[in-house]
Design a protein around this nucleic acid. Sequence first.
DNA 1: TATAACTAGGATAAAAAGGTCTTTATATCA
DNA 2: TGATATAAAGACCTTTTTATCCTAGTTATA
Lengths: 144, 144
Amino acid sequence: MFSKACEYGIRATIHVARQSLEGNRASLKAIATEIESPVAFTAKILQNLVKMGIINSVMGPTGGFEIEKEKLGNIKLSQIVDAIDGDAIYKGCGLGMKQCDASKPCPVHDKFAKVRTDLKEMLEGTSLLGLATELDNGLTFLKR
Amino acid sequence: MFSKACEYGIRATIHVARQSLEGNRASLKAIATEIESPVAFTAKILQNLVKMGIINSVMGPTGGFEIEKEKLGNIKLSQIVDAIDGDAIYKGCGLGMKQCDASKPCPVHDKFAKVRTDLKEMLEGTSLLGLATELDNGLTFLKR
DNA sequence: TATAACTAGGATAAAAAGGTCTTTATATCA
DNA sequence: TGATATAAAGACCTTTTTATCCTAGTTATA
């Protein structure tokens, strides 16, 4: 469904969000340990998310990654996916055809449209605040 | 969503199904031309589908690929996806975690479950017969 | 000023995608 | 019947993309 980078990116961001809820910054190492991801690879993904304005980074001792608390409710999963994997999953043809739309649909165009819309609405309707809160309450997990 | 192999595999199979409806076999070359796919890669995918018992092949002159007409209504998209990409898309965790289920869910487990179920039901509810018929009626296309 | 932390970039490994050539099966025709 | 042409099967190789690793930098703060 998503690339590895996107999977790590989502998990990392949720961890950063949770830490930010409690007023802490998360260091690269702490993030990689928490979500069990390769450190260097995770670094690149985080850099990308910083560039896209989704998370903030602070250098130096006591530095790390954080998200402004007030923004947590407004950041949606869809923004993370879009920043890392692009919009192919929302817009692309399910069978990989270049030109596939209502006027010249692929054999499964209509049927896929529904699934894609569901996915899109789910991603656009899920905020970091909710995910971080559930995680903090022990309802969900980031490892294994 | 799917691998290239799977996308080509689905399109190829739909073309074979349509030809079979009309009592014709489809040669590798004809298939690759029809769905605009790389010939050698398509060959491998078709071989795999033959091994999985989804399509039949006949060697030699006048040979090619075909599907028994009577089977067309029973073959579901899900079988093709499963044969080529496996069941990760049905069973795998949306965030790539090894152990993710109701007892230890990832942060998006529940929300993804619905999308995955929709996708699964769609794939399991779509038969080759229907797809081939729509294609034959000019309602859908396999190129571009 | 030392150091914890992020930044930048390339190097490497693994997987996916695609290509080439040889072998095997089978219709058709001499 | 046997030669031949045709088409899939199979083994092996190259290219491209994705994933991962590494080695220097740069920055900010204790």
